[in-house]
Computed example of a mutant assay.
Amino acid sequence: MPDTTDADGLTVGQVSARVGVTVRALHHWDEIGLARPSLRTAVGYRLYTAGDLERLHRIVVYRELGLGLDRIGAVLDDPAADVPGALRAQREQVTERIDRLQQLGAGLDRMIDAHERGLLLTAEQQAAMFGPRWNPDWPAQARRRYGDTKQWQQYAERSAARGPEEWQVVADEVADLDRALGDAMDTGVEPGSPEAHRLVERHREVFASYFPLTRQMQVCLARRYEADPGFAAHYDGIRTGLAAWFRRIVDADARAHGIDPDTATWQ
């Protein structure tokens, strides 16, 4: 216990400095009967004794252990109180809290990693899921281009919540869409046709696995699919000319919804 010698007659300010709690807390503890000064001056000011100071130190210790003030009062004032039992119960709560904080810390680490890397899969896992045409550098390129946007934040939040199994579902949906696009181009589906509109809508739904995609954003994305050599090679590897055809069906769908694809912006 701290040294409480020469402690009789201490004012609330002096006790506050010695014990390390605020004057306001001392007044509150006095009001609720948890720690009342034992002495009074001739004019009625309350003063703390060495015994009061020792009780205050014990209150501070129990409070730091997480006990509530009511429980502390019972432990200090009830001769039959099971102090070890109360401390064991508190220890269990502390252990549970530590476990929750460790889980929170792991979640924060994963979220940080997702914001910095995007896709939380190894290059080998990406190739196995998304196929040999997938470029594992694409997430890093997207981070450099879009890392300060709302969409990247949404993508990172989704990525942090997914493991390999969840990403496999996304990969399968993307592969099915790619096949459907290639088959539609082969069969001569025309831009602006009902089937083309359905494919464009399906693309927006599948892409929502990464972040919500507006029609204007979809126009910008289709333009990038055609212009960027990496993306163009991916889609043209499925069907020659697929990147350009996909842009045409997206542009036609945008016009059908009152959007000029020539002036569409990322919004």
Rank of each mutant, 00 (worst) to 15 (best):
R145D: 15
D178L: 12
Y48I: 03
G85Y: 04
D30A: 00
Q168P: 01
L69W: 07
L101E: 05
T4D: 13
R248E: 11
P212C: 11
H57E: 12
G147E: 02
A264N: 13
T49F: 06
Y45Q: 08
E92F: 00
V94S: 13
R46S: 10
E201R: 11
E92S: 07
D236R: 05
Q153G: 07
A7P: 01
P79K: 13
R18V: 01
C220N: 01
L53P: 06
P194E: 12
A244N: 03
L47I: 06
E54F: 05
E205Q: 04
E201S: 05
R36D: 12
Q267K: 03
R58H: 14
L101V: 04
A17L: 14
R91M: 08
Y210I: 14
H203E: 09
A252C: 02
A171F: 09
V200Q: 05
K150L: 15
T122W: 05
Q151W: 08
G66K: 05
D172G: 03
E166F: 00
G44C: 03
D262I: 00
V15F: 14
T95M: 00
P212Y: 10
H57M: 00
L181A: 08
L39K: 14
H27Y: 15
S16C: 05
A171V: 12
R63D: 10
A86M: 06
R202W: 00
A128F: 05
G182L: 07
G9M: 12
L47V: 09
R158L: 03
H27S: 10
E205P: 00
R255D: 00
Q102K: 07
G192Q: 11
R88E: 09
L65R: 11
W138P: 08
R36G: 10
A232M: 13
L87K: 06
Y155G: 00
T149N: 06
F211I: 10
A127N: 10
G230V: 11
T41A: 13
A222L: 10
R158M: 03
A222D: 06
F211S: 03
W29H: 09
V61L: 15
L53R: 10
D176I: 00
R247E: 15
M217F: 02
V15T: 06
E226F: 02
D113L: 13
P2G: 15
P194W: 01
R46E: 09
E166T: 00
A140Q: 09
A17H: 04
P136D: 11
L67A: 02
A171S: 08
W245Q: 09
L56K: 11
R224Q: 14
I59W: 11
E96D: 08
R247S: 11
H197C: 07
L101H: 08
I112L: 06
I112R: 14
R144L: 11
G33M: 02
R248H: 07
A123N: 09
G188P: 12
R24W: 02
T22F: 09
M129E: 12
P132K: 14
E190R: 15
Q154V: 06
I249T: 04
R91Q: 11
I249Y: 02
D251S: 01
